[in-house]
């Protein structure tokens, strides 16, 4: 294992994050505050409680998940796409490192950034609502797993993308709708029965539900099913990455 190389990639990627700290830090704080104002104050005043939790508090896990998933995906996809775009990928390919070491470096950095953003949002939420975390360890575990699995997904997108448009395509057309329709801002039980069934095909539902359980002890779906869902999702991503490694897909001719 070339630990020096993993560290070098990680440090280099994190440097990009710290270089744009204002953007990395301020934009999630600002957007979360806006969500609280719009959803929490404006809509929340009309919805008293959901599953015995105040609406403003209810949306916190959903908001964190929304940002963490998009941040992890975009950070990881950009991280590996950019060297491809500007040509510096030659150095990764000619260095004495394995593909998995490259993945660990990039995905590790992207997941760290997403985790940072998630924690910042959680901290921001404390300014707006009274929050009690019922299962802190489970909360952290869900958060870290989500950061990692969506960074893996982002890495795959970054390898696959051949231009900036494709890089934006999946986050914009797939992830954002799935997260919005995955119960970020509402409980599935609030939907008409037919939609409740359809919603169960949305994998993000399980992640948000599980994460919300770790906060309030209530969930739309069983916590073990949530854990299994995130396990399967991570497994699929790892499988695709293994296939990329075997075939050299879009990296090594």
């Amino acid at each position: 294992m070339n630990f020096q190389a993993i560290k070098a990639i990680y440090v280099f990627e994190m440097a990009r994050f710290f270089r744009t700290l204002a953007q990395s830090f301020l934009s999630p704080v600002l957007s979360t505050s806006l969500y609280f104002v719009v959803f929490g104050a404006a809509i929340g005043s009309r919805i008293e409680q959901v599953d015995g939790v105040s609406y403003a508090a209810f949306i916190v896990p959903g908001l964190i998940m929304l940002s963490v998933m998009t941040q992890a995906t975009s950070n990881a996809s950009f991280g590996i796409y950019f060297p491809k775009f500007i040509g510096t990928i030659y150095e990764l390919l000619s260095a004495p490192i394995s593909f998995f070491e490259i993945v660990i470096g990039y995905v590790g950095a992207a997941a760290t950034k997403a985790l940072f953003v998630g924690i910042v949002i959680l901290a921001t939420a404390y300014f707006f609502v009274d929050l009690q975390i019922a299962h802190p360890i489970a909360m952290l575990a869900f958060l870290v797993l989500t950061c990692l699995s969506f960074s893996l997904l982002g890495f795959i997108i970054g390898i696959w993308a051949q231009n900036f448009e494709q890089l934006q395509l999946i986050p914009l057309l797939v992830i954002t709708p799935l997260v919005f329709l995955g119960g970020s801002f509402y409980s599935i039980s609030m939907l008409p029965p037919a939609w409740q069934t359809i919603t169960l095909f949305n994998p993000v539902v399980y992640l948000i539900s599980g994460f919300r359980w770790s906060f309030f002890g209530v969930a739309d779906v069983d916590i073990w099913i949530s854990l299994m869902a995130i396990g399967i999702f991570t497994g699929i991503c790892l499988g695709v990455i293994w296939w990329i490694f075997k075939t050299g897909y879009r990296i090594r001719s």
Partner: peptide
């Protein structure tokens, strides 16, 4: 092919790290 926003020193250090050298 170079990372445009990176400092000279950092990009050179990255290369050394990638090749597993302390």
């Amino acid at each position: 092919s170079l990372e445009p926003f990176e400092k000279v020193m950092n990009t050179v250090k990255l290369s050394r790290g990638l090749f597993g050298k302390p």
